[in-house]
Design a binder for these strands. Structure first.
Length: 489
RNA sequence: CGGGGUGUGGCUCAGCUUGGCUAGAGCGCUGCGUUCGGGACGCAGAGGUCGGAGGUUCAAAUCCUCUCACCCCGACCA
């Protein structure tokens, strides 16, 4: 068998180009995303450049979500980047929440502006204003609109993909006649996020409600999906807000109902951002670099010719014919026949870039009418008969996708713990780390105490906790909620 | 925004403490040749306003002041 004589040699001697996750996770992350050319730092503080591979991941996330938004009845629109100051002031909690991180345009065309303009941190206000113009009657409802946009929040501390001054996202804004319908929409979109993130990004998430202190500025209720990164930290990967009548009152979104009574509408908003790219990297990546789920990998298969120069023509001819069979299946596949790099160099390079499957073909393969395949996620080496290649590759990609999700799920389960009290929680976080399930009485002081003692915050109150925790981990009184706590990005 | 750290060819860094020749190394890059089943090798090259601005000095990568960016730790967040 072809694989065995290779395995014998230097199975473990892969080139060390990046810091091991265990040594310094944060450093591993920065080195990986830069070396894999997903991003680069820009001359502007806290802003990154999405390089083609990074941007393509985002494009695939966009495509997958956009399809789902359309299927649930939403349409896209686009609202202005600039928000008049007076708009932001209309919703009290909203201004207070965002004020510290707003960049302002105070001058344009060589003149000072009458009213300064904020660069949008989110678009509730300007969209709310437009909705107030458009909505007159219950017949105009519901309004189901989504916007793909960039937003700016002048964060104190930035981190590529996870928290940057400018980021790309999607924000859905809907208006409904009743609270019930608006709440239903909030839940529906949270479920769209869960389904997408789990099935396409292969990231298991926890659905739940945010505690009041973690709520979106101006929302009645905020719900989230939370994912566990490989260092045990949590990443809020999507949010859906039930805004009640807060914004409709602030922006005068009223409609005449069937009973001829003028009523304030109920609104929702929901979003995910380029932060999801960071989640993919930190959930699946390993010491050799990225590991991308086939569903969103810009390149799913890399095909590499091997063997001595005198056999090259023959090898390339065979590779070409097999390659076209793969392309016909719609697979994102490319051959790397550059002569200036050795096969070994290429193996490492595409592993760093996270390409899910590598195919190799050389004289020995040709003689046996086969192709050697190596899975990025497991490193497993397989031999595939030439005649079965396209179908087998398709099957393998599906299997890789499923296995990645399963392993991420197992990881999350293995790093989820229960804590009865603060000391137990602190011991877990300082030791193995991960998520902590604990009871909470509902008092903000107790939530704050957890943060001070352990640096972990309440991620959410899960809809379906593995079990109900009876006592508050801080004060010991009867728990009102069972909460997931974790250190978070 | 507070505390700490780092900025020297594309990358990783040495040189700075104690100012002094022409600023170095490895990797990468370019050309030619030999190689090619887990980051090949030889020869010949290219590439640096030492993050930026000011200052001290006969002389600054090196000392002083300011500033910017990035990283780590806190307070704020998708």
């Amino acid at each position: 068998m072809v694989a065995s004589d290779i395995d014998k040699n230097k199975e473990k001697e892969f080139v060390q180009e990046i810091t091991a996750q265990e040594d310094d996770f944060s450093r591993w992350y920065r080195e990986t995303i830069q070396k894999a050319e997903l991003m680069d730092y820009s001359p502007v503080r806290g802003c990154i450049v999405f390089r083609p591979d990074g941007y393509e991941i985002w494009e695939r996330i966009q495509a997958g979500l956009d399809r789902r938004f359309k299927e649930t009845g939403h349409r896209n629109a686009y609202f202005p980047l600039f928000i008049p100051e007076s708009f932001l002031e209309k919703e009290k909690e909203h201004v207070e929440g965002f004020n510290p991180e707003l960049p302002w345009v105070t001058e344009a065309g060589g003149e000072k502006l009458e009213e300064r303009l904020a660069i949008r941190p989110t678009s509730e206000t300007i969209i709310g204003y437009m909705y107030s113009q458009w909505i007159k009657s219950y017949r105009d409802l519901p309004v189901l609109i989504n916007q793909w946009a960039n937003v700016v929040r002048w964060e104190k501390r930035t981190l590529p993909f996870l928290r940057t001054s400018e980021f790309l996202w999607q924000e859905g804004h809907t208006v409904h006649a009743t609270e019930e319908e608006a709440r239903e929409e909030t839940m529906k979109m949270l479920e769209v996020y869960r389904e997408f993130v789990e099935n396409e990004l292969a990231i298991p998430v926890i659905k739940g409600r945010k505690t009041p202190s973690e709520r979106f500025a101006g929302a009645v209720d905020t719900y989230s999906i939370e994912a566990m990164m490989k260092n045990g930290w949590a990443l809020q990967s999507g949010t859906s807000h039930y805004l009640g009548q807060n914004f409709s009152r602030a922006f005068d979104i009223k409609f005449l109902d069937k009973d001829n009574v003028l009523k304030y509408a109920y609104t929702t908003s929901w979003g995910v951002s380029t932060r999801l790219i960071g989640a993919v990297i930190m959930v699946h990546g390993d010491d050799r670099g990225l590991v991308l789920p086939p569903a969103i990998a810009p390149l799913q298969v890399i095909f590499i010719p091997v063997g001595p120069a005198k056999r090259r023509g023959e090898v390339l001819a065979r590779l070409e014919s097999l390659l076209s069979g793969l392309k016909e299946k719609g697979l994102r596949v490319r051959a790397d026949d550059r002569e200036e790099y050795s096969p070994g160099w290429k193996f490492n390079e595409y592993e760093l870039r996270g390409v899910p499957l590598r195919l190799e073909i050389g004289p020995r393969d040709i003689e046996n009418r086969q192709v050697t395949a190596v899975r990025r996620d497991t490193g497993e080496k397989l031999v595939i008969g030439e005649d079965r290649l396209p179908g087998e590759v398709e099957r393998l990609l599906k299997e890789i996708q499923a296995d990645m999700f399963r392993r991420a799920k197992e990881f999350a389960a293995a790093h989820s713990h229960r804590a009865q009290d603060l000391e137990e929680a602190a011991a877990i976080l300082e030791g193995p780390g991960g998520f902590i399930l604990a009871g909470w009485c509902g008092a903000e002081g107790c939530e704050q105490a957890v943060k001070e003692r352990t640096k972990a915050t309440a991620r959410n109150i899960p809809f379906s906790p593995p079990e109900e925790m009876p006592h508050c981990l801080v004060c010991g009184s009867r728990a009102a909620h069972t909460v997931w706590f974790a250190r978070a990005y």
